[in-house]
Design a protein around this nucleic acid. Structure first.
Lengths: 226, 226
DNA sequence: GTCGAAACTGACGATATAGTCGAAAATGAC
DNA sequence: GTCATTTTCGACTATATCGTCAGTTTCGAC
């Protein structure tokens, strides 16, 4: 009856390098991969344990050996996808000379990521939709907040003056929301390739406006040399 | 075996004015209202027929007298919400002198709508998320496309030159996506009232990017006098 | 090789939800 | 009032999914 660990396994899925450990990791990876596909296809709720174990080609019990329930798998899935996205963002935004370049690189990183990984975009979007519910999954919010923090950190370090936390958060929300929002709507009508191309023209306009917004939000921006 | 009607009832829910008809309409309205609340709380998939009939205080069979299944209720719900939103947009954008005012009014209409109707925003967002799935509900796409068309129509009539359809659709997607995208992210961290206030500061930035994008998209914009 | 531990399995009981259907209640026509 | 029609009801069956657990296989230590 002791609370023990919240999770059945270590988070990163790296067990010590023994045959057992490797097999464990392999199976877990199979389950996560299958989960990604199934969730992207049927959504967070319509995805069942059977769907996943069948696709992963493992027994039903194996699922419960690795995860307490669907909620835990979904949480891990979100953590995976969002940290991969955050990683790519950090990579592409490494050395940007100024704010405008940074914002542009940030949007570019998102587009690059999503356009190559439709499944993950759906996962991202489904997760975000779940956050609007009072009765949603646990373990989804944290990965999203972490992802927002990465965006915030990059912007913060790109401007010389200190910027209020709420403003920073607003910016991160605007960036993340704009990209995924546009993306999700665009797919109703356009082909995948179209989406990426047409996005570009809005991109520069949006970057410019964001930069303006930031400079206006900074108290002593008027003394700043371009 | 004849295809008959796709729906069990007429769409608008107006039966001829007899006691039976009024009772029918009242019950249907109760079900839709209950559906709205339940779906906003638990999401499209976790909402069950029992949830709805219990909340509406009608028997289980009554649900199936009015709707073929949950999918049909959800479709009608979306139709309701989105046409109400579209109506408010059209109302607020009636007489705008120029494009920038129109865009601003359009964003204002969205904010006004969503900020007063959190339930409907959730519905909107859940519906949109469902559209990203291959295996989603039928009857959701059409209302969304209609809503996009309203936005497109307003923009189209606000500019003198003809604008290509795809560009128009892109714009509508950008507007709808940005607003709901930002909104959905903002709620992760901020209180409801905060969200609306902070959105306003980004509003002009977004209007500016849209206006710039449009002027760039129009071929002979350079000859246009401000 | 033997033995214990770790990983996996699939059948099982429990539960929840869907959709049906005959009966009951409300209404309309007369 | 009677009787037909419309609407509502809730018990019922069928089904799908969950989470468990006793047993099996794979592996590691020796």
């Amino acid at each position: 009856m002791i609370a023990a660990d919240t999770s059945k396994d270590n988070d990163s899925g790296n067990k010590k390098q023994t045959r057992h450990g490797r097999r464990f990791d392999r199976t877990r990876a199979k389950l996560l991969k299958a989960g990604r596909t199934v969730v992207a296809e049927k959504g967070l709720d319509r995805a069942t344990v059977d769907d996943i174990t069948v696709r992963a080609d493992v027994g039903r019990g194996t699922f419960y050996y690795h995860f307490n329930d669907m909620g835990e798998l979904i949480g891990d899935l979100m953590k995976e996808v969002l940290s991969e996205l955050a990683g790519q963002i950090q990579d592409r935004c490494q050395v940007q000379p100024d704010l405008v370049s940074l914002l542009d690189a940030m949007i570019g990183a998102h587009i690059e990521f999503f356009s190559k990984r439709w499944e993950d975009f759906v996962l991202f979007y489904q997760g975000r939709a779940d956050l609007t519910l009072v009765d949603g999954y646990d373990g989804i919010e944290t990965p999203f907040v972490d992802y927002l923090k990465v965006i915030e950190g990059l912007i913060d370090s790109a401007i010389s003056q200190p910027i209020p936390r709420p403003v920073l958060r607003r910016l991160a929300c605007a960036i993340a929301g704009f990209i995924s929002g546009y993306y999700s709507f665009a797919v109703i009508t356009s082909s995948q390739e179209d989406v990426d191309k047409t996005f570009m023209s809005l991109r520069s306009a949006f970057v410019a406006s964001l930069a303006r917004f930031i400079s206006e939000a900074l108290p002593d921006t008027r003394t700043e040399r371009h």
